[in-house]
Design a binder for these strands. Structure first.
Length: 584
RNA sequence: GGUCCUGUGGUGUAGCGGUUAACAUGCCAGUCUGUCACACUGGAGAUCGCGGGUUCGAUUCCCGUCAGGACCGCCA
């Protein structure tokens, strides 16, 4: 027996027994004739005590933080107890001690209240991960994947694997590319998601698939975006949209209950994509509070106010949010700050109105009495309210007002962290026109099935075609998304046509898939959840690096291993590759 | 690709056109029998990210560069 207990286990009930413990030295307190050592392992902390007459006291005094020890001794009651510690009633009177490993002085304090900045933490990630807080998060992550697996196994899903070395595809994010040695000049790509493979499983006759799958996208990072991330990937045959949503709701319900002990109601409310954009200006609205967007175009059709008039005449949008009791909370100076903040979304200005029986604000003098009356009725302004108005092209207005709504709600504390307002955003448009490239793109992805009633519009009015696409949103974050898929090769080709892919391109990129569709394809659909985001949500952190054991920096650099790094010319030539100049 | 913020002992911060570069913590030594952020006394430890410029003089101001972070674009 290498040890008899973990360091969170011993209590008054164990007094008098001989135990063997191991762990890291978390903290030594040397009181002269009395030495205490906090021994930390995966589960917790136990205090070791060395009395004045203990022959090991000298040994204990030489021990430093983070040494790895194995000790044997007797459990005894403390003369002064620590109620903050699970094992705070007892301590170990040490009889033998073995130093399994010594330790250099660590570059950071290994405790929850570490003072190290994130780059230091990432460089010495293995030390950072010793902190109980990080242990707790990674254990929560494990707990979540365990519950997910149990749930999906229980619902009859098969955990099936898909390749990591696969084919690069043009649509979507930038691929991570892997050069082939056998086929010099050719490349694999790491999967952005197992999308086509899971559909092929359906064509293979598996009816319920899942995988906790690593995905790779070579795009710029954010606090909640890493170049490699994990999806809970699910696909089902012979089902409709309701089946996918209901299954997802059961899974989230189970997760919230088991991880946080929170009961949530199903079914989750639904918003159409169109509604979400109108009422919240985003496809991932935070629905924990009101302050919805109010469209004011109708009021200002013939206004004398030049700013609104110009926007109205050029097909722009005039929208507002009513900040209830915002008049006092938002001084002129703070509003100027908000105006500056929304400039990053392209908003050229922010009009504001205060109300205390009548409107006041810089723009009031440009508006007629009728317009002000209509404004009051439309926005429901009351004593002490603040109205913020943005007028510009729709994408700018929506982005700016969404930012304002979220920022102000946070500042005014209009919501609670533990409100889980799961919402489905459904009925996504199939296509989105890109002005720059002068072509349509798939809003979700090109394999999404469209509403039967819209089939005739594919060629005539692609931007009106709605798809069976759905996103799961909570607290203003996208947790997952999916769709019903096309199971008919003619329809699949028609979609590719709208996307501007000719037959040759379709065959080169997706020929294998178009062919597979010809051999009998069950109707199918699925969904994928961002595991990292689920962990963030349940572990209450806004930093994705906190929930990934070995994450990368904002520039996709691993500070621990220093990847990516140079490779030798020999390695390159084996792959048929040659570096261009500009070598350091 | 762009905007903004940060870079000073091991760690985290303060600071300022001329300083003995300050504080906390960690580290080392000593005192201490009940600590648990032990306490107290003393000590060591910094080419102020790197390069250039302005200046009599730059850690401080300016430019560039590198690194880290936040955001915009991007992420079907």
């Amino acid at each position: 027996m290498t040890y008899t207990h973990h360091n969170n286990e011993l209590t008054m009930a164990d007094i008098g027994t001989t135990v063997k413990l191991k762990g890291f030295v978390s903290k030594k307190r040397d009181l002269g004739n009395l030495v205490f050592i906090d021994l930390r392992d995966q589960e917790g902390i136990t205090q070791l005590a060395f009395d004045a007459d203990n022959p090991l006291k000298a040994t204990a005094e030489a021990i430093k933080n983070e040494f790895v020890l194995s000790v044997q001794g007797t459990v005894r009651e403390r003369s002064s107890k620590n109620p903050n510690l699970r094992t705070g009633d007892i301590e170990i009177d040490v009889a033998t001690i073995e130093v399994l490993s010594t330790a250099k002085q660590p570059p950071m304090i290994i405790a929850d209240e570490t003072d190290a900045l994130e780059d230091t933490r990432l460089k010495y990630r293995y030390l950072d991960l010793r902190r109980p807080r990080m242990h707790k998060i990674l254990k929560t992550r494990h707990h979540i994947t365990r519950v997910v697996r149990e749930f999906l196994n229980g619902e009859g899903f098969y955990d099936l694997e898909t390749p990591m070395l696969t084919k690069s595809t043009p649509e979507g994010a930038r691929d991570y590319i892997v050069p082939s040695r056998n086929h010099k000049g050719s490349f694999y790509a790491l999967p952005q998601s197992p999308q086509l493979f899971k559909q092929l499983f359906m064509i293979s006759g598996f009816e319920k698939y899942y995988q906790i799958a690593r995905c790779f996208r070579d795009e710029d990072l954010r606090a909640d975006r890493q170049p490699e991330f994990t999806q809970i990937d699910v696909e089902m045959s012979f089902i409709d949209q309701e089946a996918v949503l209901a299954m997802s709701e059961r899974m989230m319900q189970r997760l919230l209950k088991e991880i946080r002990g929170i009961d949530i109601k199903t079914p989750f409310p639904r918003l159409t994509y169109k509604e979400a954009l109108e009422r919240f200006g985003t496809d991932k609205p935070d629905t924990r509070f009101g302050m919805e967007h109010i469209t004011l175009n109708a009021i200002f059709k013939a206004t004398a106010f030049k700013v609104f008039k110009a926007v109205s005449d050029t097909g722009g949008l005039i929208k507002a949010i009513n900040v209830k009791n915002g008049e006092k909370a938002y001084s002129r100076k703070k509003i100027d700050g908000l105006t500056k903040a929304i400039a990053k979304y392209g908003a050229k200005g922010l009009a504001f109105f205060k109300y205390d029986g009548s409107f006041s604000g810089p723009a009031v003098k440009f508006l007629s009495d009728t317009e002000l009356e209509n404004l009051k009725t439309k926005t429901g302004m009351e004593q002490g309210d603040l109205l913020l108005v943005v007028a510009d092209k729709p994408s700018v207005v929506n982005a700016a007002l969404n930012y304002l709504r979220n920022t102000i709600a946070k500042e005014m504390e209009l919501y609670d962290e533990d409100t889980f307002d799961f919402t489905w955003v459904v009925d996504w448009p199939m296509f989105e026109y890109n002005e720059e490239d002068r072509r349509y793109y798939a809003l979700h992805h090109p394999f999404t099935r469209i509403h039967d009633s819209d089939k005739t519009k594919i060629e005539t009015a692609p931007d009106q075609v709605l798809a069976y696409g759905y996103d799961l949103v909570v607290q203003g974050q996208e947790l997952g998304g999916g769709s019903l898929r096309i199971h008919d090769q003619d329809m699949q080709k028609a979609i590719f046509n709208v996307l501007g892919m000719d037959e040759a391109a379709q065959n080169a990129q997706f020929g294998f898939f178009l062919e597979a569709l010809q051999y009998g394809t069950p109707p199918h659909g699925g969904i994928a959840f961002g595991l990292d985001r689920i962990v963030m949500l349940l572990a209450k952190t806004s930093n994705m690096r906190d929930v990934i054991a070995f994450p990368k920096t904002a520039s996709a650099h691993c500070l621990l291993t220093d990847a990516p790094s140079h490779v030798s010319n020999a390695q390159l030539s084996e792959l048929g590759l040659q570096k261009k100049s500009r070598d350091e």
